[in-house]
Design a protein around this nucleic acid. Structure first.
Lengths: 156, 156
DNA sequence: TATTGGTTTCAATTCGTTTTGAACGAATTG
DNA sequence: CAATTCGTTCAAAACGAATTGAAACCAATA
């Protein structure tokens, strides 16, 4: 049951164990301690500790206080859409911006090359045309983000 | 110049070398042979061969015939939007469907568990509520695909 | 048919990442 | 105050994926 749910999150480039932890917490009605995870998922203490901190930094799980128990307990946040939005802003957006700058950089480098004569006229023509296409494509992709965000907000 | 372009594609989970090859071909005005790639990218013949075939199967590059040269030559396709659409249909869509089925499977497993008594009533309530939320979320995500597709088609 | 140029396949290696288990320190308990 | 319980950190090991180089293969040519 949990394995399947864990696998679901593994698709997103996260470490396996973090996905498992989230899956377990997401389906569990009470907050769990680190060694609950160790026992239920048969992973090492180290993995559990690292995975939990990872997910907590990322905002996917929360640390909660359970009276009468010294141990830290964790529970999963319920709003996945919000989580996705946040990760988009944190991970995807910066990358898109970075590649935008990179593209501009390539362009100016190309112009230097053609002045130095290491790139011929026709080559330059073709290459810069392709780069322009690439920029247009890049803009379209960037345009998807905001729309997707709106779609996630709609409650039906 | 090409390194940067190569890195651009590496972000998508493809093997590094395939990204480099595509970058090189995309910015080159003439079709290139396998050992052009070997020389310009300093990768091994094996990598070049595998990477090229990989990209060709994927539809990102085309094999072209250059008269008077026995070697195979490759050129990049120019329509990136189309490429992206195709990959969505080929890779993302099936996965989404798979996880849809998987979700249904978890659900029925949960019901079996509650009948066997290995899951208590409140647990079941909470868990199935979470699963329902997950399904709704999943549907929203699925809804993004078609819209994104339309956005990519718009030419401005 | 032998040779040449080119491509593919495959086992071995390298590389980066994830996981582990033990060691450590802080906090708590009896 | 000694013993225990937690959580974190660290180096080493396990693992998977990617790359390599060489050998096998294939087709065209002489």
């Amino acid at each position: 049951m949990v394995e399947a749910a864990g696998g679901l999150f593994q698709l997103l480039g996260l470490p396996r164990s973090a996905g498992q932890i989230f899956g377990l917490l997401y389906l569990s009605d009470k907050a769990l301690s680190l060694d609950d995870m160790v026992k239920r998922l048969s992973i090492s203490k180290g993995s559990a500790s690292m995975g939990a901190r990872h997910l907590a930094n990322w905002g996917a799980i929360r640390q909660v206080w359970v009276p009468g128990d010294r141990r830290d307990h964790y529970e999963a946040v319920d709003d996945l859409s919000q989580l996705l939005r946040a990760s988009y802003a944190e991970f995807v957006k910066p990358r898109l911006n970075a590649s935008e700058r990179k593209l501009a950089g390539i362009f100016s480098e190309l112009e230097r090359d053609v002045e130095r004569g290491s790139v011929s006229g026709p080559e330059f023509k073709f290459c810069s045309e392709r780069l322009r296409t690439l920029v247009r494509f890049h803009e379209k992709v960037q345009g998807i983000g905001p729309v997707a965000e709106k779609l996630l907000n709609i409650k039906e």
